[in-house]
Each structure stands twice: as structure tokens, then as C-alpha cells.
Design a protein around this nucleic acid. Structure first.
Length: 421
DNA sequence: AATTTCGTCAACCGCTTTTTG
DNA sequence: TCAAAAAGCGGTTGACGAAAT
């Protein structure tokens, strides 16, 4: 479906049409072009976009010509709504042939510590992109070093893989993160820590690199700012990383025999308050709860003095609902309001959940998972995660307990998939 | 207008894990 | 079973544009 830009731009814009997804942005490092004021809007609707590049010219006087060639985010801040912003990327116009290659070669030479003159490094030229793209579309994925060779690229396979995964892949979403995505990233990071690839796996169309950059540049900064207004004493021991928690869980599986199980606790009620209302800024909620300490310790409220581990999940994660447009493996927002708090409680001696029925669930439901030592199992409570019996594994020892099961229902969020259709 | 500072992000590096022969 | 190669991952760097001074 085509959407007239006129309808989404705040400023007057030459009427044209956009068919998402628009995939390609050109690296901003490319040389500043000479600008032509007669440049017309050209937005491709093709999925083969990476082979073509686009210019955009607004009629808005508020947008200077030079800003046309700035980052997608920059122009989007001027003109675009958040979702159009997600899709529009612009290239800088040509000067990307020889000059650019020279620049690349310089970069490559400077960076080439191995004196391997055959392999290029640095920014990818459009020609290289085209080679890789067309090769991949023709032949699909294979051994990356073969791909590099067969596609006629003077690149190592690793570099090709990275370029494809982070940039050329047709299913990349690109553009600014939506508030929902931000919330999800924060939440997943609170569970997974810096396991960017695992976080990315649950954000369709996003790459680990992208999320990592986003976290380091944006979220971390915001959290840091917000933390300045709060005392670290407001919170429990934050010495454990999520990874530590997993390790701890696994270590228990190794068996310190006899004790009655998990000695972890997370007092995360406040933490999850930020999910209570998806319409409000998650960061405003976080203002009340995060300290700078927590930036590096994403399990800030973890307290190992207690014998329960409590995960709080937004509704969509903890107990997904089914919709027609989504298969049963995944959680779905459905009609439910994102942010209704759910918790998974993992006490040492208690076994079954206090769960209510899936439908009509209320806030503050508790899901309980038994965790015992050695011979213990992680037993599924009454449909703990709603769909898919992910915890049904028989005789699953603690050592086998991992975050995958816990997170399985977070593995995809269709509501995050912005589409103009 | 010039300079400095800041924020972003593509790409590299080095290490670990997985796969292959 | 083992070694080498490939793939995967997270941390880091540095170029660039934008914003601030």
C-alpha cells in the first residue's frame, strides 16, 4: 500500500509516494556532495533498493539543502512521524565512485595491520554492496569466505557477513526504535544483560549491532541522567549481572545438594511499573527506580538474601494471547494492554502457581516455578507462559534451565513490526 | 563564522564457540 | 578425537554531522 507523504509530513511536502520498506541509507561518512536544487524526490518502492540510492527534497524552507544529506534521524526529526521515520533513509548523492573507493582504500591501508593488500577494509562502496547483494539474492547464504571470493569482493568473509547481517539483509527494519521496542530492549537487557544477539533475536528486523549502539548511545545515557536524581541506597544490592544470575542458577544445578533451592530474589515491582502504561514514557517511570549503578548492573534489584526469584514481565511476555494474525508460539499484545504486570515467582519450596486463568487476568498475578536442587525440576505451572508449554520439559534440571525458556514468548513481537500496509 | 563538543553508528578487533574434515 | 576453519559475539574505535559555544 502506498501512503502519500503529504499525509504524514508535518510540513508541506511535494506529493509523492512511499512504499515501505525503504531499506537503504548510505553511510554518512561518504563525501559531502554538491547539491542540486532541482533534485527531485525519488523514493523507490523496490525491495531491491540496496542497489539504488535516493535523494529527497522537501519544499519546506525549514529544511536546508545541506540537511537533506544528513542522517535519516536528523531529517526525520524535522519532518517525519515516528513510523515513517523508521523507513526512510537517504543517501548522499554521487561522489561514490572512484573518490569513495580511494577513501576506502586509504582507510583500508591505514587499518591494515596485517599488510594484507588483497583484502579491503573500511567502508563499503556501493559497488561492493551491489556485488554482495546480488550474489546473496542469487545464491543465498553459504560459506562466507566463498561468498566473498565468488562475489568478486576483495573482502574477508567476516566482513561480508557483517555487512550483510547489519546492512544489506532485506528484512532489516532500520530507522528509529519505537517506544515499544525501547521498552522491550530495556526489559530484555534487564534479563539478558549485554547479550545483544539474543536481544536482537527478539526484535524482528533489528541487529545486535544496532541495539548495542542504541543502548550505549541513547538508553544508557537516559538512564544515567535519570539516575542522578536518586540515591543508590534506594535499591538493593546490585552487584549481580544477569549473567551472574544465570550462572548462579546453573551452578545450583551442579548441586550443592541439600539446600532447598534457588536463593535469588528480585524485588522488581517498581521495575515493572514502567510497563504499566505503554502510553507513557518508560523512561519517566524509570526515573523513579534506576541508579547509575544499575547501568552496569542491569539486575539492580536482585537480592540474593532472599529465597525467591521473581521475574516481572509485561503481560505480552508473561502470558500471551492468541490472535489470528499470529501463530501460537509467540506472545501477542492482543487486546491486552501492555504493561499489566505479571510476575513469575520461583521460590524454593513452593511449587505451583497462583495463576489465574489466562483470560481476564488481573494485575499482579504470580507465576511460580519450582526450583530444586540437583534432582529437582523446573515444573510448569498452570500454563505459566500461556502458550506453548515451554516449560514442560520433563526432568529438566536446574542446570538446564536457561533464559531461552523464560524468554521464548518474547521471541517475537509482531506489534513491533512497523508496516505501512 | 569558526571552533569545540557531543552523539551516532558502521566497521573492526580479538576472543569464544561451533562446525568441518 | 583433534585441529583448523568458519561463524558468532561483544567491546571498541573513529569518522562524521549536529549542536553548542
Amino acid at each position: 500500500m502506498e501512503v502519500p507523504l503529504q499525509s504524514v509530513f508535518h510540513s508541506t511536502y511535494q506529493p509523492t509516494y512511499i512504499t515501505p520498506p525503504l531499506l537503504y541509507s548510505y553511510p554518512k561518512q561518504s563525501p559531502q556532495p554538491h547539491l542540486h536544487h532541482h533534485t527531485t524526490i525519488t523514493i523507490s518502492s523496490s525491495l531491491h533498493l540496496p542497489l539504488s540510492y535516493h535523494l529527497i527534497k522537501p519544499s519546506s524552507p525549514s529544511l536546508s539543502p545541506s540537511s537533506l544529506y544528513t542522517s535519516p534521524l536528523s531529517i526525520s526529526n524535522h519532518l517525519l512521524g515516528s513510523h515513517i521515520r523508521s523507513s526512510i533513509h537517504m543517501r548522499k548523492p554521487d561522489l561514490m565512485g572512484k573518490d569513495r573507493v580511494l577513501i576506502n582504500n586509504n582507510i583500508a591501508n591505514n587499518n591494515n595491520k596485517n599488510n594484507n593488500n588483497k583484502l579491503r577494509k573500511g567502508l563499503w562502496s556501493p559497488e561492493e554492496d551491489e556485488k554482495l547483494m546480488s550474489y546473496m539474492l542469487r545464491n543465498g547464504q553459504g560459506c562466507w569466505s566463498d561468498i566473498a571470493r565468488n562475489a568478486g569482493l576483495q573482502r574477508c568473509g567476516k566482513s561480508c557477513r557483517l555487512r550483510w547481517i547489519n546492512y544489506l539483509r532485506p528484512d532489516l527494519k532500520r530507522g528509529a526504535f519505537s517506544p515499544q521496542e525501547e521498552e522491550l530492549i530495556i526489559h530484555l537487557h534487564s534479563i539478558l544483560g549485554n547479550r545483544w544477539s539474543q536481544i536482537a533475536a527478539r526484535l524482528p528486523g533489528r541487529t545486535d549491532n544496532e541495539i548495542k549502539n542504541f543502548w550505549n548511545s541513547t538508553i544508557k545515557k537516559r538512564l544515567k541522567n535519570s539516575s542522578q536524581t536518586h540515591s543508590p541506597n534506594d535499591y538493593h544490592d546490585s552487584s549481580l549481572e544477569p549473567r551472574d544470575v544465570v550462572d548462579k542458577i546453573n551452578a545450583m544445578g551442579m548441586g550443592v545438594g541439600g539446600s532447598s533451592g534457588m536463593l535469588l530474589s528480585m524485588h522488581e515491582h517498581e521495575m515493572m511499573n514502567m510497563y504499566m502504561d505503554s502510553s507513557s514514557s518508560s523512561f519517566s517511570s524509570m526515573n523513579t527506580m534506576l541508579t547509575s549503578n544499575q547501568l552496569d548492573n542491569p539486575f539492580p534489584l536482585l537480592d540474593n538474601r532472599h529465597d525467591q526469584m521473581v521475574f516481572s514481565l509485561p503481560t505480552c511476555m508473561a502470558k500471551p494471547e492468541m490472535t489470528d494474525e499470529f501463530d501460537g508460539r509467540y506472545g501477542v499484545m492482543g487486546g491486552g494492554k501492555m504493561g499489566v504486570e505479571r510476575e513469575i515467582s520461583i521460590p524454593g519450596s513452593q511449587s505451583n502457581s497462583t495463576t489465574e486463568e489466562n483470560n481476564g487476568a488481573t494485575q499482579n498475578e504470580y507465576y511460580t516455578i519450582e526450583m530444586k536442587n540437583n534432582n529437582s525440576k523446573v515444573e510448569e505451572s498452570d500454563n505459566i507462559f500461556g502458550v506453548g508449554n515451554h516449560w514442560q520439559g520433563e526432568n529438566m534440571g536446574i542446570g538446564e534451565w536457561d533464559l531461552e525458556g523464560l524468554l521464548e514468548n518474547v521471541s517475537s513481537f509482531p506489534f513491533l513490526d512497523f508496516q505501512l500496509q
